[in-house]
Nucleic acid binder design. Sequence first.
DNA 1: ACCCAGGTGTTTC
DNA 2: GAAACACATGGG
Length: 209
Amino acid sequence: MKNHFGFRNWWPADTNFEILVGAILTQQASWKSVERAIGKLKEMNSLDLDSIINMPKERLHSCIKETGYFRQKADNLKNICKSIKEDYKSLEILLALDDDDLRRILLSKKGIGNETCDSIMLYAANKEVFVIDAYTKRIMSRVFGIDENIEYGKLQMLIQANLPKNLVLYKDFHAQFVELGKNYCKKSIPLCNKCPLNKICGYNIKQPA
DNA sequence: ACCCAGGTGTTTC
DNA sequence: GAAACACATGGG
């Protein structure tokens, strides 16, 4: 995949806070719309903890509307920012916690599920956790015959058990899955025969106990 | 008109 | 547990 798409290392963002906001906004939304929404926040110089906390809800709605579920996302974002501010003062202090504590705190917030949590851990906190998304599940299902309804944690363990534990590799590999999914493994279309993964179809994956 | 997008939380069997 | 549903907009 790297030969095909090139090295990705992905999640373009200027700050960790931008990654946090992007991770929430991109839920069930196209990245294009997320970029525009974040652009609007940047334009009004409001892409930071305090600005989101203090911004009138209607203003935040208008910024993130096109990413969908905008009322939920606005409420969740504000609550998450507020609790980070109250409990840790800054996002960086939260991100500096050890893996288990960080995961526990993130998952306890409404609006942060497995994928959002792991995206923040991998791309903002630089923790070695592999992010599972819909593309990953679909590709593992279509190419390797894994049950597409597999539990998040099970597929995560399966992949992590078969991949060298390396931060840069994890970041790049997740990005490769997304690129592959967008281009060759769409939902209602059979696996494209030009899919670069076809070359290694049948590769013997180690199953977890 | 229909399906989909870098999901999550709640309710119901 | 898992299945069904609400959440909402924009692009193909």
